[in-house]
Write a protein that binds this DNA or RNA. Structure first.
Length: 471
DNA sequence: TGGGGTTAT
DNA sequence: ATAACCC
């Protein structure tokens, strides 16, 4: 069996094999422990993989239209190229580049409109669902990233290896810093097995969905995400604990730290904190006064690579929204028309989901020269008789919803004074399962997970994929 | 900069 | 309801 995807640029370096004598009664791998073995977050240490699909929207478009495969391709929303394939990147196109700049850099650039997210959203959930077949702890981050806590799968495989006595154990993919693996170190062994599982996850995503992506394997979410980007298209990287400091110190600016965004960066810079080392060394008490105890402690722990946040299964979405941006919208009639455009698609999505929303929100962005960032919103509970109508299609739910949304609009905007909007968004949230049957089940994609043969069979399939036969 | 999402306050 | 974060 070959590595998997055709993208041949891969030269999976350093796949050395290690002959590993098992336990021998020494202090090698961890004891099996009784019954429920190391659950996620136990003292044993977790194994977390972060999976990040390569230029996701562009990949989806290339699958929809294979003729685009070998061309430089950009996905356009309004006048922005939001992402592009690697052919385009070679020629200087970057994410979030204006169409004008992109065409200048690459006149042959092919553009597809990506304002309708439906194909991306659907593919995205297929990926999450697929990962959910391997393991229940899958957390989405945006449409193209997932965290998977594979601690339990690693544990199972460790037990199997111990029973077979001798096994060939080797890293799949890269090791950060080219650090040598010590197979007498239990933590190393678990992470190495994690790298094999990560490769299987990527392999499944490729063979079943045709998508390539990167993976990072580490002992927590934060580190797995950080190390994921080390080798970029379609490769994976394992982080061993001894290289953790090197990884985080490699971040030249604090805004590269996931969890430290624009606002926090501004405040940290006022305090003279410019890089991760500054943050590590900064007095905690002062930081807590500036950011609050909770945020301060969290980001300072991040600066050491510590992150105890669990991989929280995302399950079905918490909200459904649809938005449109435009140059100008300045009359009530136009607002109503825009809302009427947004609703049908949204309602169809909610109908497909099957749950009932109990809250609606209208969000606007007003034109302004300096604060293009800020949005305002008004929300209200849906009257029960409207909530009810989400199950059925026939009745006209649109008119009363539009009326409701226009009331929300008038709470924000005095329609007697001139206004200039550049965005409208409608969001339905507070989703509840229909009172239909008995239990409050989770349904959605986690539902059909165990056909008769159950989880044992599923896991075995995973385990078989890249078993380098022992000898 | 788009068209989405989440959680915390 | 807003503010922060993520993509």
């Amino acid at each position: 069996m070959e590595p998997f995807p055709p993208p041949s640029e891969e030269e999976e370096e350093e796949e050395e094999d290690w002959l590993c004598p098992q336990p021998a009664g020494g202090a090698a791998p961890p004891a099996p422990e009784h019954g429920k073995s190391a659950s996620a977050g136990s003292a044993a240490g977790r194994v977390v993989v972060h999976i990040d699909l390569d230029c996701f929207y562009a990949q989806v478009e290339m699958i929809r239209n294979p003729k685009l495969r070998d061309k430089p391709l950009g996905v356009q929303q309004k006048y922005i190229v939001v992402t592009c394939n690697y052919e385009a990147r070679k020629r200087g196109v970057k994410k979030m580049m204006s169409v004008k700049d992109a065409k200048e850099k690459c006149p042959q650039l092919v553009l597809v409109n990506g304002e309708d997210l439906t194909p991306y959203r659907e593919t995205s959930y297929k990926v999450t669902e697929l990962l959910g077949e391997f393991c229940p702890l899958v957390e989405r981050l945006g449409f193209d990233e997932n965290f998977v806590d594979i601690t339990e799968i690693v544990e199972k495989r460790l037990n199997q290896l111990q029973q077979s006595g001798w096994s060939r154990v080797g890293v799949a993919g890269h090791v950060y810093n080219h650090q040598a693996v010590n197979l007498h170190d239990a933590t190393h062994v678990r992470l190495v097995i994690g790298s094999q599982i990560a490769e299987e996850l990527r392999g499944a995503i490729y063979t079943r969905l045709g998508l390539t992506g990167c993976a990072g394997v580490a002992s927590n979410k934060f580190l797995s995400k950080l190390v994921c980007g080390t080798f970029k298209p379609n490769q994976q990287t394992l982080l061993l604990p001894e290289s953790c400091q090197d990884l985080i110190r490699s971040l030249d600016h604090i805004q590269k730290v996931p969890g430290i965004g624009y606002k926090t960066t501004q405040r940290l810079e006022m305090l003279g904190v410019r890089n991760v080392c500054d943050l590590q060394a900064f007095p905690s008490a002062v930081l807590e006064k500036e950011l609050g105890v909770s945020a301060a402690q969290r980001i300072q722990k991040l600066s050491y690579g510590e992150d105890d946040s669990p991989v929280t299964p995302s399950g079905p979405p918490q909200s459904f929204s649809d938005e449109d941006s435009f140059k100008k919208c300045s009359s009530e009639v136009e607002v109503k028309e825009k809302i009427e455009e947004l609703l049908p698609n949204l309602l169809a999505r909610i109908h497909r989901d099957g749950r009932q929303p109990h809250t609606v929100r209208l969000t606007i962005r007003q034109f302004s020269t300096d604060k293009w960032f800020s949005r305002e919103s008004r929300q209200c509970a849906l009257p029960p008789h409207l909530s009810q109508k989400f199950g059925k299609e026939s009745s006209n739910i649109i008119s009363p919803l539009v009326d409701l949304l226009m009331k929300l609009f008038r709470k924000m905007i005095d329609v007697d004074v001139p206004f200039h909007l550049t965005l409208l968004s409608v969001c339905f949230s507070n989703l509840k399962d229909l009172p239909s049957s008995k239990k409050g089940s989770i349904g959605f994609y986690l539902k059909h997970m165990s056909p008769p043969s159950g989880s044992g069979k599923r896991v075995r399939e995973v385990e078989n994929v890249s078993q380098g036969e022992g000898s």
